[in-house]
Computed example of a mutant assay.
Amino acid sequence: MAPVSIDDLRVVVAVAEHGSFVLAARHTRVPTSTVSRAVARFEDAAGVRLFQRNSRKVSLTAEGAMLLERAAPLLEEMDRLVEGLAGEEASISGRLRVTAPTMSGSRPIAAALMSFAEAHPKVTVELSLTNAVVDLLEEGFDLAFRAGPVHGADLVARRVWSVPYALGASPAFVEKELARRKKLDRAALESLPAIAARPDTVWRFRRDDNGVTTIRPRIRFCVSDLRVGIDAAARGLGIVGAARHELLAAGLVLLEPKADVGRPEARELYAVYPSRRLLPKRVALAIDWVARALRDAER
C-alpha cells in the first residue's frame, strides 16, 4: 500500500463526518476541488473505496465507516498530544454545557461526566436531560449526545456508542399473557400491549439478509421518559423496547422476535457539536472521555 497523507486523512474524515464534500470544504477551509482530490489520493493510496457518491448525497462504504470510527479519535488524540506537550491539559477550565437523552443521559453518560468533572476540577459541568432536539447554538450548548441519524449542516456528529436494544416484559406478563412464550411472531408483536416513549413509535428489526422490518406496536402506556416506561413494564403493563442492559437491570424477561422479523436494531449514539475549525479543548476531552467510558461499560 502506498503511503497515505495525514492531511488527506483529515479531509477524508471531514467528508465522512459531514456527509458532504461541500460542507467538508467549508469546515477545512479549502476549495471543494481540493477536497475531491484529497479523497481520491487517499482512496488510491489505501486501495479501497471509502464513499458512495451520487448527485444528492455522499455515504460511507463499510471500509469508510471503519476508517471514520478508528481514525477520527486518533486524529483528535494526536492534536491534543501536540497541544499538551506544554502541560496544558491539566489546566483546562470553563463551563461545559451538555444535553443528552433522559435514559442514556441519566445513567452511563451522566456517570462518565461525573468522573470527567472529578478529573478536571476547573471545569463546571451542566447536564440537561431531554429527549427534545435542541438548537445547540441558540441554547448555548457545547455538546449534545443524540441517537442517530443526526441532521444539520452546521453540526458535526461522531458516533460514540452502539447501544444494543431488546424487547422485554415482566415475568408475570410472560406467564399470564404469553403462556411462557419468549419467541414472538409479527402478529403477536403488533397485537400485544406495548409501552413506548411516543405515540408514533415504530420498532425496527434487522434481519439476517440485512433488511429491516418495521412494526407499529399497540401502545397501551405512553411516557416520554423510558425509565418510567421500564417501570411500567415491570408492573406488567406490556412489552417495552429499550437498551438491553436497562431491561436486564430492571429484572425484565428478554423477548426474542422470530427469525423472519429479525433482531431489534441497535441505537447509534452520537456526540454532536457545532461545526468549528477548532473545538474547545474541554469539549474535545469530554467527548473522548465519555466515548471511552461507554466502550468500557460494554466489556
Rank of each mutant, 00 (worst) to 15 (best):
A38I: 07
A72G: 01
A40Y: 12
R56K: 06
A119Y: 08
D200F: 00
V11C: 01
A250M: 09
A232E: 06
R26N: 08
L75R: 13
L9E: 07
Y273V: 07
L74V: 09
R207W: 05
P101K: 12
A71W: 05
T102Y: 08
A266Y: 06
I230Q: 09
R49G: 04
L113I: 03
R276Y: 00
P149W: 05
G229L: 11
H18S: 15
L60Y: 01
P73Q: 11
P171N: 13
L237D: 07
R107H: 06
M103R: 15
D208A: 12
R263T: 14
F21N: 10
L278G: 00
N131A: 00
E126Y: 05
A291G: 08
A232F: 13
R41D: 02
D288G: 12
A16F: 08
F145E: 02
G64T: 12
A25D: 12
A45F: 03
V163R: 15
A166M: 11
A16H: 06
L60N: 03
L254I: 15
L255Q: 13
L255D: 09
A169F: 13
A38G: 09
H245C: 04
A62V: 13
A243V: 10
R159A: 04
E246W: 11
R41F: 00
D200V: 01
L96I: 01
R41I: 00
S106C: 10
V133S: 11
R207P: 03
N210C: 00
T213I: 03
G236D: 07
D154I: 14
V283W: 05
T102F: 01
R235W: 01
E268H: 09
N131I: 02
A100C: 13
A157Q: 07
G262C: 08
L74R: 15
D225V: 09
E190K: 14
V202I: 09
G236W: 13
R276P: 03
K182P: 06
V283L: 02
N131Y: 01
S5F: 08
V98L: 07
A293R: 15
L278K: 15
V223W: 02
I195D: 04
V11H: 03
R244V: 01
L237S: 04
A71V: 03
V35F: 02
I215P: 03
A45M: 11
T201Y: 08
K281Q: 09
P199K: 14
L81N: 04
R181A: 10
A250P: 10
G64K: 14
E265V: 03
I215Q: 02
A172I: 10
L226V: 06
G229P: 14
T130S: 06
A194E: 01
E118L: 10
L74E: 08
R70S: 04
D154H: 15
V98G: 04
Y273F: 14
L68C: 01
L285Q: 15
I287S: 10
S104C: 05
A86S: 13
